[in-house]
Design a protein around this nucleic acid. Structure first.
Length: 370
DNA sequence: GTCCT
DNA sequence: GCGTATGCGC
DNA sequence: AGGACCGCGCATACGC
C-alpha cells in the first residue's frame, strides 16, 4: 500500500560500535557490496520502518520528492540493520538517518506512535491527496487541484471521469488490479508471447524482461521489457520514427488480445495494460501494467543493468564506478579524465564486461536485491 | 530530510 | 498552428 | 550556509 510501484527486499550490512562519533563514521552504504547476498533477514524494526514509510508517502504527495527519497533511504538502511534499534542515537549511525529522524525514532520507541504522523492522518486534505495519488497518472499536483475542487475519493473520481486524461482514466478503470502484484509464473507466459511476436517481426530483435523478475523474485509490481536490434544504433536514434518495432509489437499483441489498453505509445517507449486470455473457465486473469523500451544497440547492456536494479544496487554500483574514475549511466560508461567525461563510448557485449571495467566482481541478477 | 562541500 | 513548459512515471 | 539528491519519453497544457 506504499507507493504505486516498486519492490524492495532487504539485505544486511556491517556494524560498528562507538556511540559518539556519529558524525564521522556512519555505516556507509558504500561498503556493503562486499557482503550483499543476504536477501531477506527479517526486519527487526518493522514498527519504525512502517511509520517512516508512511511519512515518506505524505512527503511525496506534498510534492517533496527529495524528502520522500530521504525517508526511503533511511528506511532501507534500517531494514538492512540486523539489530533491534533501541534509541535514536543508535539509529543515527546508519546512513540516511540524521538528527530529525533519530528524534522521531525516540518518540516512537517511547510512546509507540508519532504525533506528526497522527496529525497528518487526521488532515482530510492530505489523506485525500494520498488516496487520489494511488491512481496512475494522478500525481501530487493533480491530486491537490482535485481536492481543492472537492473531489476526495476514488468514487468521486468516477463521477468526473470525462475530465481526466486518458492515462488517468485507465488508471481509474484498473485501480485495484494495478495494486496487485504479478506472480512470476504469469510473467513467464507474457515473456513467451512477447518473444514470439518480436521474432515474427524480425528474428534479430533481442529482448529481456527486467526488474525484479530478472532478479528472481517471485512477484513483481509490473512487467518491464527491454528491446533492441543490431541495426538500431545511436546514430539511428534520430530516424527512430522509421524504426517502428514498438508500434509493430503493440499491434501484434493487440491482435492476440494480450494488450487491452494503452497509457502512452511512442517510438522508444510504450506503457500499457496487458491481460492473459483465459482459455479455461477455471482461471480468470486480471489486468497488468506492462512497459516496453527500445534501446539503441550500443546501450543495450547498460539499459539491461540499469533496468534490472535494484535501485539501491544501481546507486552503489554507480558509486563504485565513480571511485574508479568512470561515470556509469543507463546508456553508457565513460572514463573521466580530470573530472570531465571523455565522450568516446566504451562498447560492451555483456553486463559482465561492465563490472570488469570498474574492477568489480560480477553480480548475477539474483544477487542484486539490495 | 540528509549528506557533502 | 507550433514551440515550449509542466506533470507524470519510471 | 547552501546545493544536490537521474534525467528522460510521452501526453497534455500553455503561451504566442
Amino acid at each position: 500500500m506504499a507507493g504505486k510501484r516498486k519492490d524492495k527486499d532487504n539485505s544486511s550490512s556491517d556494524d560498528s560500535s562507538s556511540e559518539d562519533d556519529i558524525k564521522k563514521k556512519k555505516l556507509k552504504t558504500n561498503t556493503p557490496l562486499i557482503k550483499v547476498s543476504v536477501t531477506s533477514n527479517d526486519n527487526k524494526n518493522k514498527q519504525l520502518t512502517d511509520i517512516l514509510t508512511e511519512l515518506s508517502v505524505f512527503e511525496k504527495n506534498k510534492g517533496q520528492v527529495h524528502r520522500f527519497t530521504a525517508y526511503r533511504k533511511a528506511v532501507l538502511s534500517i531494514k538492512a540493520y540486523p539489530h533491534e534499534i533501541k534509541s535514536g542515537l543508535e539509529a543515527q549511525k546508519l546512513d540516511g538517518v540524521g538528527a530529525k529522524i533519530a528524534k522521531k525514532i525516540d518518540e516512537i520507541l517511547k510512546t509507540g506512535d508519532l504525533k506528526k504522523l497522527k496529525s497528518q492522518n487526521q488532515d482530510e486534505t492530505l489523506t485525500a491527496i494520498n488516496q487520489l495519488s494511488r491512481v496512475t497518472g494522478i500525481g501530487p499536483q493533480k491530486a491537490k487541484s482535485l481536492v481543492e475542487e472537492g473531489i476526495k475519493t476514488i468514487d468521486d473520481l468516477k463521477k468526473i471521469k470525462n475530465t481526466l486524461t486518458h492515462h488517468q482514466q485507465i488508471g481509474l478503470k484498473y485501480f485495484s488490479e494495478f495494486e496487485q502484484r504479478v506472480p512470476r509464473k504469469e510473467i513467464e507466459v507474457f515473456e513467451k508471447l512477447v518473444s514470439n511476436s518480436l521474432f515474427s517481426i524480425d528474428p534479430n530483435i533481442i529482448s529481456q524482461v527486467c526488474g525484479s523478475y530478472r532478479r528472481g523474485l517471485e512477484s513483481s509490481g509490473d512487467i518491464d521489457i527491454l528491446i533492441s536490434h543490431p541495426n538500431f544504433t545511436l546514430e539511428m536514434k534520430d530516424k527512430k520514427k522509421t524504426f517502428n518495432i514498438i508500434e509493430k509489437l503493440v499491434e501484434s499483441l493487440k491482435k492476440k488480445h494480450i494488450l487491452i489498453d494503452d497509457l502512452s505509445l511512442g517510438p522508444l517507449k510504450y506503457m500499457g495494460v496487458c491481460k492473459l486470455v483465459s482459455t479455461e473457465i477455471s482461471e480468470q486473469h486480471i489486468a497488468r501494467r506492462i512497459d516496453f523500451k527500445l534501446i539503441p544497440y550500443e546501450s543495450y547492456y547498460f539499459g539491461l543493468l540499469h533496468n534490472t536494479g535494484s535501485d539501491e544496487f544501481n546507486r552503489q554500483m554507480r558509486g563504485i564506478a565513480l571511485k574508479q574514475g568512470f561515470t556509469l549511466s543507463e546508456y553508457s560508461i565513460n572514463k573521466l579524465s580530470k573530472g570531465v567525461k571523455n565522450e568516446t563510448p566504451i562498447l560492451v557485449n555483456s553486463e559482465k564486461e561492465i563490472f570488469d571495467i570498474i574492477g568489480m566482481e560480477y553480480y548475477p541478477p539474483n544477487k542484486r536485491n539490495l
